[in-house]
């Protein structure tokens, strides 16, 4: 009798612990960062390939990229730097290894019109892949502060 009472008490105690430890309601999943919402590295690289293609076909600004496109190694470097930059800015695991924007564009005298044409090519690339407006605005918002470091340097 005594041992069965002890067993019952232990059973109840274990049950109480289990009930106490059980989460009352499942915790909501943390919201995915922009990198994940964009679709990760493969989606970003697809957008960047489209973006550079848009720029190469655009006579208004492709002269600025002529030397880069003519050299496959430099073109590759530009592409990887763009992917790294977007990936890192959106919370992805990449590490941007290029120069800071001010140093990279020093002496280029890039105009507002050229910068706007570049942004239009990026927007066209995002639209081609049907990136939702929220994600598109968020990404453009992350890249917008670079404008002052690129234009008129």
């Amino acid at each position: 009798m005594k041992s069965s009472m002890r067993f019952l008490l232990a059973f109840l105690f274990a049950g109480a612990i289990l009930v106490a430890c059980k989460k009352s309601s499942p915790e909501p999943e943390p919201p995915a960062n922009l990198y994940e919402r964009l679709g990760g590295i493969s989606a970003i690289s697809a957008v960047v390939d489209q973006f550079i293609s848009n720029v190469v076909a655009n006579n208004a600004i492709n002269a600025r990229f002529a030397a880069t496109v003519a050299n496959p190694h430099r073109a590759q470097l530009l592409r990887n730097n763009l992917i790294d930059q977007i990936c890192e800015a959106t919370g992805g695991p990449c590490k941007y290894k290029g120069l800071d924007m001010k140093t990279a564009h020093k002496g280029m005298q890039i105009t507002d019109a050229e910068f706007n044409a570049l942004v239009a090519d990026l927007v066209a690339a995002l639209d081609k892949f049907n990136v939702p407006k929220k994600e598109k605005d968020e990404l453009l918002g992350l890249l917008a502060p670079m404008r002052s470091d690129i234009v008129g340097q």
């Binding site: 590295i41 550079i52 990936c87 290894k97």
Partner: peptide, 17 residues
């Protein structure tokens, strides 16, 4: 040496017009 980035594993591409 540069830090590793997932872009290092991407297949290289060229751009031609």
């Amino acid at each position: 040496r540069k830090p590793y980035s997932p872009t290092d594993d991407l297949e290289p591409v060229s751009y031609t017009a």
